[in-house]
Computed example of a mutant assay.
Amino acid sequence: MQAIADGRHPVGSLLPNEFELAEQFTVSRSTIRAAMRELQASGIVSRKRNAGTRVEAVAPLQSGGGFSQSLGSIEAVQQFGVETERHVQRVAEVVTDEQLARALGCQPGRRWLRISSLRMIPGDATKTPICWTDVYVDGTFAGEVRTRMDSHRDIFGTLVEKISGRRFVEIRQDISAVGVSADLASPLKALPGAYALSIRRQYLFSSNEMAEVSLSIHPADRYSYSMRLTRQQVEIT
């Protein structure tokens, strides 16, 4: 944590692997794994199999009883699926009308698989949802996603990557302030009209092809969003 705070491991960089860290600190790999779990739980790093451990923040996130998320990479977005529990509420195949097409940012008439879920913090005795999320997966992948979704814990983006054999190279994110709608108030255990954040994420392949969109509603008292901005190095003449 001190090395990260001092800038020796900048935000966005990858930490040395477990073998290197164990040798550096003269401890066992099990000790390193325990330390990584602590860093991950505090929001300082994100971890992904075969991708390494990425630095996401320079200090622990302070959460006011809700859930704090620090995002600086696609891997950090994917980490959300590991840190929370998904409780699927309904699944349906839909075709976008004009209104839904505007919400998703696509053309009318496109077919999607919509998976509606509540997200929970593991071990939360109150079982208060963090958010309601409607995930729209391109209809091309609908059959396989339906078959494999029950055993898939991560966000559905990683499942689409596995099925397609392709990687998402960009996530476009839009955040706006909204009120909790009447139909979501009960499942979210919130008052109708209560302050909330609406987050839309569009997942794109390298061909600029959008294969997934998520629309999430986060009650304001349960979620905070952290982003780190840095100045680009510009030569002054």
Score class of each variant (00 low, 15 high):
residue 176 S to N: 07
residue 221 D to V: 07
residue 95 V to Q: 13
residue 229 L to D: 01
residue 54 R to P: 08
residue 147 T to W: 13
residue 78 Q to C: 15
residue 93 E to R: 14
residue 93 E to S: 13
residue 157 G to R: 00
residue 138 D to V: 05
residue 215 L to F: 12
residue 173 Q to R: 14
residue 213 V to E: 02
residue 95 V to R: 10
residue 35 A to L: 13
residue 175 I to A: 07
residue 1 M to I: 08
residue 168 F to M: 09
residue 1 M to N: 03
residue 103 A to L: 08
residue 128 T to N: 06
residue 10 P to M: 00
residue 166 R to M: 11
residue 18 E to Q: 15
residue 155 I to E: 11
residue 141 F to W: 15
residue 54 R to I: 13
residue 130 I to P: 05
residue 43 G to R: 02
residue 29 R to A: 07
residue 194 A to E: 14
residue 82 V to H: 14
residue 36 M to F: 08
residue 119 R to D: 06
residue 121 I to D: 06
residue 106 C to R: 01
residue 55 V to S: 03
residue 159 L to M: 00
residue 146 R to P: 01
residue 119 R to A: 14
residue 7 G to I: 08
residue 220 A to C: 06
residue 165 G to W: 07
residue 113 L to R: 02
residue 119 R to Q: 13
residue 144 E to V: 02
residue 94 V to N: 00
residue 159 L to H: 01
residue 141 F to A: 07
residue 107 Q to F: 06
residue 168 F to I: 04
residue 196 A to E: 01
residue 224 S to F: 01
residue 35 A to C: 09
residue 172 R to E: 15
residue 44 I to M: 13
residue 61 L to A: 09
residue 84 T to W: 01
residue 83 E to N: 12
residue 235 E to T: 07
residue 151 S to L: 11
residue 182 A to S: 08
residue 192 P to V: 07
residue 91 V to N: 11
residue 150 D to W: 02
residue 153 R to L: 03
residue 166 R to K: 13
residue 99 Q to H: 11
residue 72 G to C: 04
residue 153 R to K: 05
residue 193 G to V: 06
residue 57 A to K: 00
residue 161 E to H: 05
residue 171 I to S: 04
residue 43 G to Q: 02
residue 213 V to C: 12
residue 142 A to K: 13
